[in-house]
Design a protein around this nucleic acid. Structure first.
Lengths: 123, 123
DNA sequence: CTAAGACCTGACGCTGACGTCAGAGGCAAG
DNA sequence: CTTGCCTCTGACGTCAGCGTCAGGTCTTAG
């Protein structure tokens, strides 16, 4: 598969894929003419990269952790990294939950005001 | 309180506070000499801003929602915005949870390999 | 009054994850 | 062989949330 097909199937831009290669997240074979060739498995790999990006990991961390995530093997150092990143994600989740609760509280209060006749006019 | 005191108490940089003002997140009175003056309540306000930033809201959204979060009042449009942002946060939480679970799974697998004698040598 | 901080307004720098544009080459169809 | 689409490699642009530096002003302790 060439880069355009992979981009379409994985739902990312061609530019993003070249960027992933630049950052050593995604390798590619080259055709005699110099064009990138990917196996089907690259689609899942790109989705995995996207998932880790979505979790807020920088590309450097992803590059460090990807081999081990793919192979299911790890050195003690990598286990530490994994554990640290997991903890960071957990703490981010905590931040998000408290922010969401704050918004929910505000919404509930506003809706209550609404029903008790204050409508939306400031005093 | 002047800007340095607020920065210290709220745990952010002076530059950040000026940036918040520029983005209309935080107002200030001015002394005759032109220096910013803040009430004590500004500390909580800054912490709130930080919380919303931590939740991934861009400053524009924060600027839109802050009055209503502070007043507890909202127009129907603002309620929609609140609801939309809460949903976005929920979906981000979902992303983070699945990423964390993925890492946990990998860690469990690696630890299992470890105990069954594979250690950390790739095949 | 004076010196030392704290503060002021620009304005440029930085990082990450790409977007975008330019100019040139590969490749399958007709 | 040409046409048209895809791809290539630079390389500069973008956007947010500040960091940082320059050159000047305000405030306050002594």
């Amino acid at each position: 598969m060439r880069i355009g097909g992979l981009a379409t199937r994985a739902g990312v831009s061609v530019r993003a894929l070249r960027y992933y290669e630049e950052r050593n997240l995604l390798a590619s074979e080259r055709s005699p003419g110099g064009q990138r060739q990917y196996p089907d498995s690259a689609v899942d790999r790109v989705r995995l990269i996207q998932q880790l990006y979505a979790a807020g990991l920088p590309s450097k961390s992803i590059a460090d952790l990807l081999p081990c995530v793919v192979n299911g093997e790890a050195t003690p150092e990598l286990l530490d990294r994994l554990s640290a990143e997991r903890d960071r994600i957990d703490s981010r989740i905590g931040d998000l939950v408290s922010a969401r609760d704050r918004l929910s509280t505000v919404m509930a209060a506003a809706t209550a005001n609404w029903r008790t006749g204050e409508h939306c006019r400031p005093r």
